[in-house]
């Protein structure tokens, strides 16, 4: 009895905060999906299934596929760049490790919007990269870097790479060096040891990192707007526009719900695979 009271006091504030600020808005979004749009935004409380019928239209599915593509490419690149980074940081001597970690999260101290605008300065036809390339005589005409899909990927990758590195770092740092020694003693070359020991042990962290990068990437609407020049529709933009421009809250809510459902599925998959991979010991 005393034990459960203790748990409740410890759990209560955090759980209450999450319930009120996450579950309630989600419930609201859910309830919006079955009503009709009001003339000036808002809702007309007459039930309809039309929002869901519209959402499965090929047009919106296309947008969803584009979003999955962009977020997917971002995630793969983040993994390819993030794993070596995390691997090296985890093996740095104490002081340098701290410096590297601080460096990794340092960009978060600056507003995300400002950092994204900085990319415009870098990528624009009159920007630093094009200036340098033309200056060195490598190209004659400025390249169209900005307002392309690769520009969106570059911006997302920049924003979310630390979210890949941090869980990988945590897993790699925890790893017991004796395991690698044992592998070496049994005749495994470093590459083999990496593939058969290190990689399987960090797989849960790889999945966590991928989810951490994929989830915010697919919902992001600032980067497609600023670096994509509004020419690539991602699902985040679509949802934002339904609320702020088209004054169609119910349809915006429906699209949001579909996105949330997709991500929930992804998180469940992650939890399930993490449990399997760690042999159900601490998941």
């Amino acid at each position: 009895m005393k034990r459960s009271l203790e748990r409740l006091t410890l759990l209560g504030p955090g759980l209450g905060y999450l319930t009120v600020l996450m579950v309630v808005p989600l419930a609201l979004v859910l309830s919006y999906t079955i009503f009709q749009r009001g003339r000036f935004g808002g809702l007309v409380y007459e039930p309809t299934t039309e929002n869901f019928l519209r959402a499965v239209d090929p047009l919106y599915l296309d947008v969803l596929v584009t979003s999955v593509e962009i977020a997917g490419v971002t995630t793969v690149l983040a993994l390819l760049l993030g794993f070596p980074t995390a691997y090296v940081i985890a093996r740095l001597p104490g002081k340098w490790k701290t410096i590297a970690l601080v460096g990794l999260v340092l960009p978060f101290w600056t507003n995300f919007l400002i950092r994204t605008y900085a990319w415009i300065v870098l990528l624009s036809p009159a920007g630093m990269i094009n200036d340098a390339l033309t200056g060195w005589g490598l190209i004659d005409e400025p390249l169209q870097l900005l307002y392309t899909k690769p520009a969106i990927v570059a911006g997302l990758l920049y924003a979310y790479l630390p979210l890949m590195v941090l869980p990988l770092f945590a897993a790699l740092e925890k790893q017991d060096d004796q395991l690698l020694e044992a592998a070496a003693n049994l005749g495994a070359r470093p590459a083999k040891a990496f593939l058969t020991v290190t990689l399987p042990l960090t797989l849960p962290a790889v999945i966590t990192g991928c989810v951490f990068v994929f989830v915010p990437s697919i919902g992001n609407f600032v980067v497609p707007e600023l670096l994509g020049g509004g020419q690539t529709a991602m699902v985040g933009n679509l949802i934002r526009d339904q609320f702020l421009k088209a004054r169609d809250w119910p349809f915006g809510a429906t699209l949001a719900l579909i996105l949330v459902a997709m991500l929930m599925l992804l998180l469940m998959l992650q939890a399930w695979s993490a449990r399997r991979l760690t042999g159900d010991k601490n998941a």
């Binding site: 749009r37 047009l59 690539t232 529709a233 526009d241 088209a246 169609d248």
Partner: peptide
Amino acid sequence: VDLGEGATDYSRIVTEVAA
């Protein structure tokens, strides 16, 4: 002028153009 339900068609076209 306000398009009433027509606004939905407009925002659809805008999405189609963007996509």
